[in-house]
Write a protein that binds this DNA or RNA. Sequence first.
DNA 1: ATTGACTCTGTACCACAGTACGGATCGTAC
DNA 2: GTACGATCCGTACTGTGGTACAGAGTCAAT
Lengths: 229, 229
Amino acid sequence: MWMTIARAARAAGVGVETIRFYERRGLIAQPRKPANGFREYDADSVARIRIIRQAQELGFSLREIEELLSLRADPNADCAEVRAQATTKRDEVEQKIAHLERIRAALDMLIAACPGKGAVTACSILDALTQMADKKATKPAPLTASSIRKRTTRRILMKTLVATIEGMHCEGCAETIKALLKMEPGVQTATVSFKERSARIHFDPSATSEGSLIAAIERGGYKAVRQTS
Amino acid sequence: MWMTIARAARAAGVGVETIRFYERRGLIAQPRKPANGFREYDADSVARIRIIRQAQELGFSLREIEELLSLRADPNADCAEVRAQATTKRDEVEQKIAHLERIRAALDMLIAACPGKGAVTACSILDALTQMADKKATKPAPLTASSIRKRTTRRILMKTLVATIEGMHCEGCAETIKALLKMEPGVQTATVSFKERSARIHFDPSATSEGSLIAAIERGGYKAVRQTS
DNA sequence: ATTGACTCTGTACCACAGTACGGATCGTAC
DNA sequence: GTACGATCCGTACTGTGGTACAGAGTCAAT
């Protein structure tokens, strides 16, 4: 008992193109009856598509759904892994809610402060927006005379970057960061202290940059900030 | 007192390309010193960019910000229009929160119902997902369990590698390895369990290989061995 | 036999908010 | 004078989840 793609799409509540898209993405297998080249689907295929939609409604991305479905197919997989995915997603959702609630509070404040009439030149909302922006502006960059164009000649002039690192859990993390840094081009020596939550990197600025080094650390899942000494 | 694009970008806390992008989008005017063709910016330009970022943080899209900024420049515009935009956005945010809260409730339910261990074949979460999907179906076609043809020919053929890892010290190490793996080309998803000392990697074998993945983990200073399942 | 509905593959396109890059030019410090 | 950084412009690419064709082939009914 099989159906063509249009019937399967209708049964699953999606479009024909969507099924083909899922197939391209590797979410569903490619069924084919080579007689005429038409795809054929059964109830299982339709059920799989419906599961995909359901998981999407719970906020899972197609990538995550693929993982979930591959877990389902794996007899060695443990239920705990599925649960972990769900928990991670719940936390993600919670974070998004918290973020949106902060936004809502800010908007409520702006709306309450607005008289609701009058010229825009005196609009409290736009004013507040400007001021909120200005308040944050204090930190990003000391834009005074700090644009010193430091020209290093062809000689290799080493620089030292000291960075504060957040997110280390143990000495092992420190070792990991050290290894990560040594993989970067131009890094001469790197010492990472778990106790001090910091790294000291001796590097060739013509081969890499502070930004790249910071980025290398952050690729490892840590937060790094340059220590202004 | 003017600055070039890089200094303005630093002052506003954005990238150079972002400023040029905003200019293309019409969010900021095109300043130019025809002498050398270099854009020049002043404090007002920087303030405008900062307002854009601030409005973005409140959830406004660039399109909406454009509207807000054009209202600000229009002497005939009324404050009520600005207020209306803010109210609309607040309602939008509220809807999103409500939606996410429903998702959170559903996830909480699934997680609570899950024993957290055991074979995935009896996983209550995946079961529930299937049933939720079925419940919505107008007419779920009868399942004939006998017709299980599994054609796994896919255009994107994903593989799963499960590896045992030695040398992890904490959850942070697990996170690091996860990040390391996600940097590898072809890696779709990676989950690393500190408790189980193992990693599960979902990858595209045409873009990488088990060996490369093992090597990637070992570059982080850990020892990885493929689990023969 | 011809219509009309359906299917095939492959590619391009939508929104969104940028990021990256190639090749050219400009400014300047050594 | 030459190397290097910063800038220019234009285009292409990122990720996410699909949509929308074009041009060709297939199926069932009339």
